[in-house]
Design a protein around this nucleic acid. Sequence first.
DNA 1: CTTGTACCCTGACCGC
DNA 2: TGCGGTCAGGGTACAA
Length: 274
Amino acid sequence: MPELPEVETIRRDLAPELTGRTILRTRIAKPDIVLNMSPRSLSRRLRGRRFDAVDRRGKYLLLRLDDGRVLQVQLRMTGRFAIGDREPDEAEFRHIAARFELDDARTLFYDDVRRLGGFQLLEAEEWAGVEAGLGPEPLEPSFTAARLGQRLRGRRAPIKNALLNQGRVAGVGNIYASEALHRARIDPRRPAGDMDAAEVGRLHRAIRRVLRGAIASAGTTFRDYRAVNGRSGRFQNVLRVYGKEDEACGRCGTAIVRVVQAGRSSFFCPGCQS
DNA sequence: CTTGTACCCTGACCGC
DNA sequence: TGCGGTCAGGGTACAA
């Protein structure tokens, strides 16, 4: 799925379009994308509701409704949105799973090839419970190097795995974990709790730089990710290790290697990441 | 508590 | 052209 920068890009695309709009009708084409109730029940509860705000927390997109409930969206690997007054380009959006008809004669379309993503309509307290399990938001001022160090203290798991754990830090996924570790010159296999303060400091900086840079580039389109209405990101042009197995490290020239950690690919430079 | 594995689902790609 | 294996920006339910 989209990681934090991709979800943030989608949030910025959707916020001005949805805020203040009312949902006239919801049509669910693929029932398994509604995660905590029946599609009928979701449609019934959304009818007549207005979007008050479009927020993000970690990789969750939060469509806040005027009845205080939150329509929580997880895009996982292949979730996408389009909005318009007609069906989106069929070549790009061929697995439309949900349609939300709005009061301005347009429709919000949700497309998801693999259907790993989906929607949950939550009461405010239910969302608060989910949110309580998430780690700090890495671009907030409250996310300091000391806070990161405290979140990693005592962890024996490899640092790469710890970064993917949303309860440690929210929003970092497989691409940006590898990219941040390369910029911080830290081996992804290092036990998370073993790093000294200087290393944690470098990692903290690197996480923020990478995520900010990726937002400024409207995300990374490595494969499936698209912003609203099919726009690609540009951060793939400046990746340093992700997907670059056997290519020369831009910093030291050593060949980038790929290893598997927790079932996911990690890319790093054995020459300058220790 | 931790850590690893299986699984959800479809499609693209590679070697045979 | 087909077939099987592998892999994919994610996360959860289990078992050990």
